[in-house]
Amino acid sequence: MGSYLLRRAAGFVFVLFGLAVVIFVIARIVPGDPARIALGPLATHEQVLQLRTEMGLDQPAIIQFATYISGVVRGEFGKSLLTNRQVSRDLAEALPATLELVLLTLILMTCVAMPLGMLAARRHNSAIDNISRLVSLLGVVTPGFVVAILLQLLAAETGRFLPITGRLSPDMSFSADITHLLVVDALLRGRLDVAGDAVLHLILPALALSTAGIGQVMRITRSAMLDIARREHVDTLRSFGVPGHVIALKYMLRLASVAPLTILGLEFASLIGNAFVVELVFSWPGIASYGVRAILSKDFNAVMGVVLVSGLFFVVANLLIDMLVGVLDPRLRRRA
């Protein structure tokens, strides 16, 4: 297991480094002068020159790359043109909001979708199966922004019981300074009113964000369970009279969870993408909102920071999932 983890970690560093290189290349092959693009056509030549020096653009490419990489390693992406602060500071502020949203989404995806997928497989071809298949299909094909808008409409219809903007109602004041996750910190500090309010704010964005993943995970869980049900080892246990629920919940589940977990890792990429839409629609003050603003205002340092952090998110999530899958399936540990 030890060398397995080491190898995974080495691969992880490699991918992250590659990601940093690709982003650097993309940012540098852009036609036109980044400083000029950032300042707009009205800026004077002197202003552009000054920004170029500030951004280090007057240095040779190799020096620029070295500065950039050493910055990335220290978690420094330079100054944001938009907020005029260090990008890393902006990101640190925006991160907990996104993290909270993504964590709840992942919980929904595993705790709702996997049991439903198993249920559908157990009741193969029944009404439950057909309904859940329809639901998962709709989940997969409905664009995140359509879901978000339909949820907003729904919230309007239900008399705004569920809030549709922000993380907290404006009349609440609370600073999350322990884990920076609002719900967790509010609970730790015993502020049930804040926690409740934060949960209400989370519901719609998390639902919007999880629809696609829930559909996908349900689908995969169902087909994995159906596939495993046909295997001979299930027959072995059945022929020795081991009860059906033990076979399903102990023996089949462990094998069947490998496929949806792997999918969950890959889905993470589209989940991060969808977060851009969802955060925008629900005015959620996370990394994605920050990213959209940075992109629209051509704030390069901020864009690079957002892309790298998103990549980091994805790679870490997949590393964790690989480790989990390695625990679940001893054969993978041995082979990989």
């Binding site: 693009i37 998103s310 990549g311």
Partner: peptide, 23 residues
Amino acid sequence: MRLTDIMLAMPPLVMALAITAIL
């Protein structure tokens, strides 16, 4: 395949956003 791995580690929408924004 390593190049593919790196490309796959970038959330596609984020990358597409960044590219279209720069262009």
